[in-house]
Design a protein around this nucleic acid. Structure first.
Lengths: 232, 232
DNA sequence: GAGTGGTCTAGACCACAAA
DNA sequence: TTGTGGTCTAGACCACTCC
């Protein structure tokens, strides 16, 4: 077995089993190198990985310590809707309701922009209602895309990879119009997902998606950061 | 500047700016070492960090390539409610409604177990309703804890650090009883958070929390995995 | 077979913070 | 001042996989 991996995993096991409590001091790199019979660089690599995963905290001169657990950091996978629905084995369809070019006005979003409204369908039933703005200053190509044929999220994913962003998730009661578009009663709870997406400091797009509460839920997982099996 | 960090950041910038598209081949470690005038180990460290953050993919003999972006992996912070409310500057209070020891029966949860129901208050108004089970086989100490005085989540966080788990988030309409406990109308949408928590393969606790939709929302952020500033 | 990443070594120097 | 982590080097060998 990999020496570095072995050191890393044994320490991680000591922490996760509760044998080493938060605040516990971990042996120094030199001590570990002697104990495992390897070079200090190898120990350093193992401890660096543990620190990167948040399990331990390292301070110069003081040493390495078991970190205090973060309150809860979970990884949530927010799929592209077209892929999500296809993965469920249902037919996916996007229907644009309105596409408008915004040049003036001020709603806090950059101009010029594209404003798009539409509905995502799964198996020919409404699944989510979407309202989006795209900053043409950041994504000039978007002006030529055909958002009647392709959902803007799918297009953006293919053309603007590696963005940063922020979601806000809440439960809301839909407006009458929204309930009608989603084919639900006016008091059915909906999950609202607000996502703002940046690249290099500039806002690329903002989208508000409204899901039928009875058809969609989000899943988030938290692990100790290690052995990151690829989420599929 | 750190050579390793400099290499890492320059490559990351090339990817995030869109100059290097997904699939683009990155120079070999040897080429980069020559270009930056440093040892191959330094380059290797930089590329390993990029690979760990998911920005690139490395294959032996073939080389390193810009990865295809994950659909969306966002990090969600799920705070301890006592801390969350204290951080808002409001008074926090926990009120237990029922505490029961389960020895028989079968609801899919291990026995013996503790079943707890209660309400979290912020500024003396109901904030969330909670139903929880704790597996006493995994957490024997919990039998002696005073869950009238302290919310079980707070106790568990202090006594069982470093767990793994899974959240399911959805929007629901509360039952009459739940609406009454939360002090809301029966058609106010609520955010439901179902969390199962493991340690070493065994389920430690399961909790269902119901939040007033008008008082609570979740935030999740996605970055490129680098320069992880600690979420506060 | 040959090129690439993966890992390890032994040593060195530096930066920083605690004592 | 001193102990600790942080980083870098030059070299070595291995493992994998594409050709």
């Amino acid at each position: 077995m990999n020496p570095a991996r072995r050191i890393r995993d044994e320490i991680a096991a000591s922490i996760q089993s509760g044998a080493w409590r938060p605040g516990h001091r971990i042996p120094t790199e030199q001590e570990l190198a002697a104990r495992y019979g390897c070079a200090r660089g190898t120990v350093s690599k193992a401890l660096s990985e543990l620190a990167a995963s948040g399990l331990i905290e390292r301070r110069r001169k003081a040493g390495s310590f078991v970190a205090h657990p973060p309150v809860h950091s979970a990884v949530m996978t927010v799929p592209d809707l077209a892929e999500l629905i296809a993965a469920r084995g249902e037919a996916y369809r996007w229907q644009a309701l309105a596409i408008e070019r915004l040049t003036g006005g001020d709603d806090g979003f950059a101009r010029p922009a594209l404003a798009i409204e539409g509905v995502h369908f799964a198996a020919d039933e409404p699944f989510a209602f979407e309202q989006r703005r795209i900053a043409l200053g950041e994504v000039a190509d978007a002006a030529d895309a055909d958002f009647e044929a392709q959902a803007p999220g799918t297009w953006l994913l293919a053309h603007i990879p590696w963005t940063e962003g922020r979601h806000v998730i809440r439960a809301v009661t839909p407006t009458r119009k929204e309930a009608r578009l989603l084919g639900i009663g006016p008091s059915t709870a909906c999950l609202e997902l607000d996502r703002t997406t940046w690249r290099a400091g500039g806002v690329v797009t903002h989208v508000r998606q409204l899901f039928r509460g009875d058809r969609f839920d989000l899943v988030a997982e938290f692990r100790s950061g290690l052995e990151s099996a690829r989420p599929s």
